[in-house]
Computed example of a mutant assay.
Amino acid sequence: MNESDVSRVLAEAVIEAVLDTPGVAFLRPGLVDLLRSSALWRRGLPSTPAGSAGVQVRRRKDTQDWSVEVYVVLHRGRRALDVTREVRSAAAKAVERVTGERVTGERAAPAQIAVTVTGLV
C-alpha cells in the first residue's frame, strides 16, 4: 500500500471514529463538499458524508510522522473541552488501528492530532 492509500484509509478511519463520538454534530464541510452535496441532491442521489475538509491527514516531512487535523461542529449542552478530548482519543485509536503504532502522550508518535471546534449547533 503506497502513502496515498494509507493516507486515505487513515482519513476514513479517523472520520468514522470522530463521527461516532458523542457530542459531535458533524465535520466541517468544505466548499467542494457543499457543492458536491448540492449537485447530488438535485439529481436525487444520496449525498456522501462531507469529510474531506473536516479531516486532513498529511505526512510530516521533518519526522515522517502523520499530522491529523480534525475540524468539528459540536452539539450544544456538552463541554467543548470534554468532547474535543474524546475526539482526540478516538482519532488516536483510529491512527493506532491503521498504522499499528501507539500514539503516546505528548510525543507525536506516530501522529500529531489537532482538534479544532469550528461551531456549535
Rank of each mutant, 00 (worst) to 15 (best):
E3S: 14
E3W: 00
D5Q: 11
S7I: 04
V9R: 13
A11Y: 08
E12G: 13
A13I: 05
A13L: 02
A13V: 02
E16S: 15
E16W: 08
A17W: 03
A17L: 08
V18K: 00
L19H: 05
T21G: 12
T21L: 12
T21M: 08
P22N: 10
P22R: 13
G23M: 11
V24R: 09
A25I: 15
R28E: 12
G30C: 05
V32C: 06
V32N: 13
R36A: 15
R36H: 13
R36V: 14
R36P: 04
S37Y: 05
S37V: 12
S38A: 15
S38Q: 13
A39F: 07
R42V: 15
R42H: 15
G44Q: 00
P46L: 12
P46R: 04
T48D: 03
P49N: 00
P49R: 03
A50P: 03
G51T: 10
S52I: 10
S52L: 10
A53H: 01
A53F: 00
V55N: 06
Q56H: 05
R59V: 08
K61H: 06
Q64F: 05
V68Q: 11
V68L: 00
V70F: 01
Y71L: 14
V72N: 05
V73F: 07
H75N: 03
R78T: 14
A80W: 10
D82F: 09
E86V: 09
V87I: 01
A91N: 12
A92V: 03
V95N: 01
E96V: 05
E96H: 01
R97P: 07
T99K: 08
G100K: 11
E101M: 01
R102L: 02
V103A: 08
T104C: 06
G105T: 11
E106S: 12
A108E: 03
A109G: 04
Q112G: 07
I113K: 06
I113L: 02
A114W: 10
V117T: 03
V117F: 10
L120T: 00
